[in-house]
Nucleic acid binder design. Structure first.
Length: 388
DNA sequence: ACTAAAATAT
DNA sequence: AATATTTTAG
């Protein structure tokens, strides 16, 4: 009978749902309704299962509800963004907006005013367990973001955290620049919340003319809110770098390429610095794989490839076409294909050898050509060789 | 008290 | 733009 079959299917579905619930459990704070929905669905299904047969009139749809159909309508409810302004800007889907009209929003270049006063807020303090406290969206009291859901538009700044990896919570702290002279009055780094089904914005966006809340207490100072270079952000960074052919890229170019709104030159610059730093021979006496136990794929020829990286970069670029880029990839983000999934494994294979990384340290994974260790920097690999 | 990362200064 | 220094979050 097909009945049994149905039961079976239903059962499976419930299991799937439960697993799903486990997954989002962590984000209870961010997705309370989502959790609730799933829970309800599970219950409904179970009821149906146990409640025996027929009369699935009322909740007949429960099972299929979230799958797809209801998704649309419901989705809106989940979107944290409350658009206060009645005027819905709906037009800004995916136009171009490549241009940088992003960072400027209220990013004043003023030097910091020296006015200084008391800092009175500590709103954070009680975030001990991150997983829980991680916020996909900043819950900062200001959702001034004009551009909401960028949808598919890549341009904006949709970034996601998490995924397979590490993501760090955003910190929203206001430390006052108590520096003696100069105070920045850069715009308040308000954070947008953009979400696409499972995506959360990771990048802050400037406030538009939106209107700041009363948050910034009349002080123009404040050390810029730290920008969190989430894996995704970094991914974009790398991507941009690749497109520019290596490290020569100027921060400005990089920033533009990244198309992340709210990202400033300085931030990129800083990040670039760090990147180069790490990129350039972490050398002296760096023995990577130390553990005799053969950490499967540690490899790391390279340098500084944050956990989540690999896949991301690979993915993007692979999809991409640029040959040159690939080279770049090879260089900086060659490694590590984690056990789980990830179809494309490159040359991660021989990991075992402790490889005389020794002093050279530079991972020369590059299929070919590589700079000499000491003298030249790693940079040119891409830039020089490929025709540009 | 230490470190890495980001911000800011030169 | 490159590097150096300072500040700060973990």
């Amino acid at each position: 009978m097909d009945f049994a079959e149905k039961m079976q299917r239903c059962h499976e579905y419930v299991e799937a749902l439960e697993e799903e619930r486990r997954k989002i459990q962590v984000f209870e704070r961010e997705l309370p309704l989502c959790l609730e929905l799933v829970t309800q669905a599970i219950e409904a299904c179970k009821r149906e299962l146990s409640g025996t047969t027929e009369d699935h009139n009322m909740h007949g749809q429960s099972e299929c509800s979230e799958q797809t159909s209801s998704e649309g309508p419901v989705l809106e409810e989940f979107i944290p963004i409350k658009r206060t302004h009645s005027s819905d800007d709906d037009e800004n889907d995916n136009n171009h907006d490549d241009d940088d009209h992003q960072e400027q929003q209220s990013q004043n270049k003023n030097k910091r005013n020296k006015s200084n006063s008391s800092i009175s807020n500590n709103d954070h303090k009680k975030k001990s367990d991150w997983l829980r406290s991680v916020q996909l969206w900043n819950q900062s009291p200001d959702p001034p973001q004009k551009q909401d859901l960028p949808r598919k538009a890549a341009v904006t700044e949709v970034k996601r955290n998490g995924a397979g990896g590490a993501f760090q919570p955003f910190h929203r702290e206001n430390s006052v620049g108590k520096s003696s002279h100069q105070a920045i009055s850069k715009a308040s780094p308000s954070v947008p919340a953009s979400a696409t089904s499972s995506i959360a914005g990771a990048v802050t966006g400037g406030t538009g003319g939106g209107g700041n809340k009363k948050e910034d207490k009349e002080e123009g100072n404040q050390r810029k809110q730290r920008r969190c270079w989430s894996p995704e952000l970094h991914r974009r960074f790398l991507h941009a770098l690749q497109q520019l052919g290596g490290s020569h890229a100027t921060p400005k170019q990089i920033r533009e390429l990244m198309k992340v709104d709210g990202l400033t030159n300085d931030e990129v610059k800083s990040h670039l610095q760090k990147y180069r730093l790490h990129t350039r021979r972490p050398s002296p006496t760096v023995h990577n794989n130390s553990s005799p136990q053969a950490p499967q794929f540690v490899v790391v020829g390279g340098i500084w490839v944050p956990p989540t990286e690999y896949a991301a970069v690979a993915a993007t670029t692979t999809a991409g076409e640029t040959s040159t880029i690939s080279a770049a990839n090879g260089i900086y983000a060659p490694i590590a294909a984690p056990p789980p999934a990830v179809p494309q494994n490159r040359q991660l294979t021989q990991s075992e050898h402790l490889q005389s990384e020794g002093r050279g340290s530079h991972g020369e994974r590059g299929t070919h050509s590589n700079n000499s260790p000491a003298t030249s920097s790693s940079t040119h690999t891409t830039t020089t060789s490929p025709v540009f």
